[in-house]
């Protein structure tokens, strides 16, 4: 566990390493030979057509999906399906889902304090103080006592981001966080994510928001058919993609932008 306790001093050191990772659903080869190293503080955007394996890739990092071949190392610990104490790894990795997945029977504040209290053993008063601070950071302190059903989609997603941040994670994963939102709510969630990126959080975002990618990404990855087809800094990715498949994909999604 020494590696988990590593400090901010190691900015730039790898925090995620995927080596030759393969994943299958039965006969279907979802991830093919994935090699990816992410450094502390790095911001990665992954895009690609649906079914290309981009969500599966980030879900393997916290083992919501298990991989069959290759190695995934998170902050010094090799993770796999049978790992005892996978919970200790997961609590360091925040995850934001397309469909928010807030707990409907808990208020925004309770959504944010549940895991810190039950998983980290934080006293209630302290967990609430932290949660309020973070709800303020995502610009919805006044919604603390509302239930998810009483919030707009954009507000729900910001509560979901706050809920993850309350665990003080080292890494944040975003799985198409704006895809289920009405168009007018996309920007409030993206603004929150940009602010988070500026704070130095290590982030991997599966998204088709290319404006966001240009603004914050250190590297943009294009996936197709379970492979990483292209990986480049945004300037190069958007202006001079090397692969024909990337060019075609960008042509399709940027056409209407």
């Amino acid at each position: 566990m020494a590696a988990i306790a590593s400090t901010e001093a190691e900015i730039g050191a790898p925090i995620i390493e995927m080596r030759k990772v393969d994943k299958f659903y039965g006969d279907f080869h979802v991830l093919r030979d994935i090699d990816l190293t992410v450094s502390r503080g790095e911001r990665i955007v992954i895009c690609g057509p649906s079914g290309s394996g981009k969500s599966t890739l980030i879900r393997c990092l916290n083992q919501l999906e298990e991989h069959q071949k290759g190695e995934i190392v998170i902050d010094g610990t090799t993770v796999h399906a049978k790992l005892k104490g996978i919970e200790d790894i997961r609590r360091e990795i925040g995850m934001v889902f397309q469909s928010f997945n807030l707990f409907p029977h808990l208020t925004a504040l309770e959504n944010c304090t549940l895991a810190p209290m039950k998983v980290r053993g934080t006293p209630k008063a302290e967990a609430e103080a932290t949660a309020r601070k973070i709800l303020e950071r995502v610009h919805i302190p006044e919604q603390a006592h509302k239930y998810p059903i009483q919030l707009s989609g954009g507000q729900q997603q910001r509560v979901a981001i706050a809920r993850s941040l309350c665990m003080n994670p080292k890494i944040m994963l975003f799985d198409e966080p704006t895809s289920a939102l009405d168009p007018e709510m996309v920007s409030e969630v993206l603004d929150t994510m940009v602010e988070l990126a500026e704070s130095g959080m290590t982030m991997i975002c599966v998204t088709h928001e290319m404006g966001f990618a240009r603004k914050v990404a250190d590297r943009v990855i294009f996936m197709d058919a379970g492979e990483i087809v292209e990986m480049a800094p945004p300037e190069q990715f958007f202006s001079a993609p090397r692969s024909e498949r990337t060019r075609k994909f960008l042509g399709q999604i940027l056409h209407h932008a």
Binding site: R90, N101, F103, A115, K118, V119, R163
Partner: peptide, 23 residues
């Protein structure tokens, strides 16, 4: 209960019994 609820609990580091009881 939708699978996403359980995944949210897992991703927060909660153990199976905690997920059952609190979520």
């Amino acid at each position: 209960i939708q699978k996403g609820q359980i995944e949210a609990g897992k991703s927060l580091g909660m153990r199976p019994l905690q997920i059952f009881r609190y979520i």
